[in-house]
Design a binder for these strands. Sequence first.
DNA 1: CTAGGTGCTGGAGTGCACTCCAGGTCAAGA
DNA 2: TCTTGACCTGGAGTGCACTCCAGCACCTAG
Lengths: 136, 136
Amino acid sequence: MLIGDLAEKSGLSVDTLRYYEKIGLIPKAPRDGGGRRVYDAAMLRWIDFLDRLKATGMGIKDRLRYADLRGKGAASLGLRRQMLERHRGKVAEDIARLTEVLSVLDDKIDLYRKMEAGGPVDPSFENCARTGHGAQ
Amino acid sequence: MLIGDLAEKSGLSVDTLRYYEKIGLIPKAPRDGGGRRVYDAAMLRWIDFLDRLKATGMGIKDRLRYADLRGKGAASLGLRRQMLERHRGKVAEDIARLTEVLSVLDDKIDLYRKMEAGGPVDPSFENCARTGHGAQ
DNA sequence: CTAGGTGCTGGAGTGCACTCCAGGTCAAGA
DNA sequence: TCTTGACCTGGAGTGCACTCCAGCACCTAG
């Protein structure tokens, strides 16, 4: 698999893949006769996992640290687990925060609907007091 | 309330508040005799709401658009509601994605625990097949 | 055998969202 | 009155995460 195929399958751009290799997020790919990078399916799985870490808000530095540990093999299992556990905690917090904001948004959307309908403002105002935000 | 108090209460830095005013995210504050910005509690509520939008992944451009609509008053209620509805959809998607990754992380943490204990690799491997990721 | 598509490198450029700084003004307490 | 701390402005700098580009090599189909 050449870099173009991997780009298509992973959803990353060719430039991004080379950038990831440059900074060490993915291992240096072996080359074919013409100097072109050759990838296998394992790399695709690794990139997919990196993508999940990224999609859940893990920055590039932490992903790099994780990639580095992974390169060290079984000896780093404990540290990798610790990183994942910490990250798990953050993801859980994010879910909680998003869920809370979801209900604030629902309240506000509701309030706007009522205001658009020229409806009564009093219940909206209570709603405003409850969420801590008015019609903004 | 001067800018330092607002910074403390909102959790933003003084620089960020001035930056927000510069780009139009918050209205230009009236000044006191010495040319210093004076804020009231309503501004704090607005900033808190902006912060929720930001914390749920709304970029500065969209926050600016929302702020701009807000400045237009009641006439923009419908458009603001539409923005919030779209954003609500994104937040719901984010929650779904995070929740999915949470279980991937749980599986992986579990797998690592077993590997650290020198336990059997077969169940871990099935787990790996299920989540689409091995020990990485 | 040549044209087009893909790949390579090193380095510059981009967009976001701040963050910091120099050099100044102003106000309130000792 | 003097000092200290908070505030002001315009503009430069930062960190992240890519993204793009020039100029070149290579390989394959026609």
